[in-house]
């Protein structure tokens, strides 16, 4: 019986962390789908949102208001990033865009270091996020449940958006064939702005959950999440939205599994094992689990 509860607990853990990876990976996938850009600065949107929320919390605002402002700040930062850094070089080789995203990362992180000092600050998460809920022998962090529920709701909304609204269908169409979408009258600037806005909003949500999870905020906090999100989207199939979600959950599960199964001496090297698993996967499915080569059927 205890094994069962242990497994259940680990499963909740895995789904919770997987939810965060999935939400992050969606943002990467949406932008990559249309622009072929791996936006490494996506992680810094987490930082922007979290600092905004932190400052407002410290100023005495209620958590709800601070959280909304943080999400809004991430969204706005994403839109500005697109407008200022990526739009001027649209159509440039992929490598130029990738390098630009590194530049944006370096700029944002150093701006944060100048503004807020390089040291981390505690994130005063409200009690309802940090409680441990007890169900019989089972102890679950409320944050895990909230992350799972929030991600679930957002994924449902996102699915409705991309399948039921014209803007969503246009976004998928543009990701598949930008030229054909333009010939149908899709406004490229608008679709790309949509992709950045939605992805950045999700990053803002992840930022709050992430900050509450690790209990602190620092200028470089976006690095890990974006790296994990990148791995997740490669696992699922780069550019595929369902792939990004699946990859997020697979990565979360893999990490928790390794955490539990590896001998204690090896757990510090858990990520190395994760990357070995990724390499093995890519040997067999170079396009990821859901990555297809449907593009051209001649």
């Amino acid at each position: 019986m205890t094994t069962f509860y242990y497994l259940l607990q680990q499963l909740i853990n895995a789904v919770s962390i997987g939810s965060l990876y999935a939400l992050m990976a969606i943002g990467l996938a949406m932008v990559f789908g249309i622009l072929r850009l791996i936006n490494f600065a996506h992680g810094d949107l987490i930082m922007v949102g979290s600092y905004t929320a932190l400052l407002l919390l410290v100023a005495g605002l209620p958590f709800g208001a601070a959280a909304l402002a943080g999400i809004a700040a991430s969204t706005l930062a994403g839109l500005i990033m697109e407008r200022v850094a990526y739009r001027p070089i649209r159509g440039a080789p992929d490598v130029s865009m990738l390098l630009t995203s590194f530049a944006v990362t370096i700029f944002l992180e150093n701006a944060a270091i100048l503004l807020f000092s390089p040291s981390s600050r505690p994130f005063p998460a409200p009690p309802f996020l940090t409680r441990a809920l007890e169900f019989g022998v089972l102890r679950i962090a409320s944050l895990d449940l909230i992350a799972i529920v929030v991600a679930g709701i957002l994924l449902v909304l996102l699915t409705l958006f991309v399948t039921r609204t014209m803007a969503g269908i246009a976004m998928r169409a543009a990701a598949q064939d930008l030229l054909a979408a333009r010939l149908m009258g899709v406004n490229v600037n608008r679709v790309i702005a949509y992709a950045f806005a939605i992805g950045s909003m999700l990053a803002g949500v992840v930022g709050l959950l992430w900050s509450a999870r690790v209990g602190k905020v620092d200028p470089l906090m976006g690095f890990y999440p974006v790296l994990k999100a990148f791995v997740a989207s490669v696992i699922g199939g780069l550019g595929s939205l369902p792939g990004a979600v699946l990859g997020g959950y697979v990565l979360g599960t893999l990490e928790i599994l390794l955490q539990g199964l590896l001998p204690p001496a090896l757990t510090p090297f858990r990520d190395a094992f994760v990357f070995v698993a990724l390499i093995i996967l890519l040997l067999f499915r170079p396009n990821g689990i859901l990555g297809t080569t449907e593009r051209e059927k001649v």
């Binding site: 246009a170 064939d177 030229l179 054909a180 979408a181 009258g185 059927k297």
Partner: peptide
Amino acid sequence: VRLGAIQCPEGRRIFGGLTVWENLRMGAVR
């Protein structure tokens, strides 16, 4: 496109991952 000058491009370039209905709906996106 909004002015009614519409091109059906070479090589068809339909959206393979979208359903037939969604493809047709994309034609009327504007």
